[in-house]
């Protein structure tokens, strides 16, 4: 469960990207973060992904308050959260399989088991046949799916996705959104940030609309 209570994120210079935001997202839910560019969607995802710390307020993920969580504990929290970035952040100097292996290397899984799980994740996103392909050789949609495979390979309980359909054609966008719905159906909490109105398949869809850092009711 994700709980935000009077959450504020203020950057140096005083700019408030998130202002007094409160919400609850149940475990296993699917939520859509909407809003125009600069509304604060990415900042809110970064806060929920423990990439940035709140300035004030309460943000708890699985009962852990991010404001008071020790710095050393953050990496361990992040391992339970799958992140799909808008720019994907793929490593272009290693093939698809090795990109997906990285989160498993981080947790120190034996290589054989890690490879088995990485291949399973690639299979789930339809990229098993491209495991040796370098990201540069993949299409935009395939790169997005590779990023998803990397995000889910660790079997996270929360999946945070930033603008997943940007730069994708309608068919690729649909495939990607179907994937998120599939993960959500097996109990993963999925939070998708988007400024484009796509039809998101899924049950219990929660919509949070942000405007200038504030949540619209």
């Amino acid at each position: 469960m994700i709980v935000a209570n009077h959450l504020t994120k203020r950057y140096l210079g005083g700019f408030e990207a998130i202002r007094d935001v409160s919400f609850e997202i149940n475990a296993g839910a699917m939520a859509l973060l909407r809003g125009h560019s600069g509304a604060g969607k990415t900042t809110l995802l970064k806060l929920m992904g423990a990439i940035e710390r709140p300035t004030s307020g309460i943000l708890t993920i699985g009962g852990q308050n991010l404001l008071t969580l020790r710095k050393k504990a953050l990496p361990f929290l992040r391992r339970n959260i799958g992140l799909v970035f808008q720019d994907q952040k793929l490593l272009f100097d290693r093939p698809a399989l090795e990109n997906v292996l990285l989160p498993l290397e981080v947790i120190g899984l034996p290589l054989r088991e890690a490879q088995r799980r990485a291949r399973a994740a690639l299979d789930k996103v339809g990229l098993l046949s491209r495991e040796r392909a370098y990201p540069i050789a993949l299409s935009g949609g395939e790169q997005q799916r590779l990023a998803i495979a990397r995000a889910v390979v660790n079997r996270p309980s929360i999946l945070l996705v930033d603008e997943p359909t940007a730069n994708l054609d309608d068919e690729s966008a649909r495939q990607v959104l179907d994937l998120f719905a599939a993960f959500n159906q097996v109990g993963v909490t999925v939070i998708i940030s988007t400024h484009a109105p796509h039809k998101i398949p899924g049950r219990d869809l929660r919509i949070l609309t942000l405007d200038h850092g504030q949540l619209l009711l």
Partner: peptide
Amino acid sequence: AEEIEVARLIGATDAF
């Protein structure tokens, strides 16, 4: 640098 950034985002500790 890129690999380090990604590794940190997916839960790599400083020691890693």
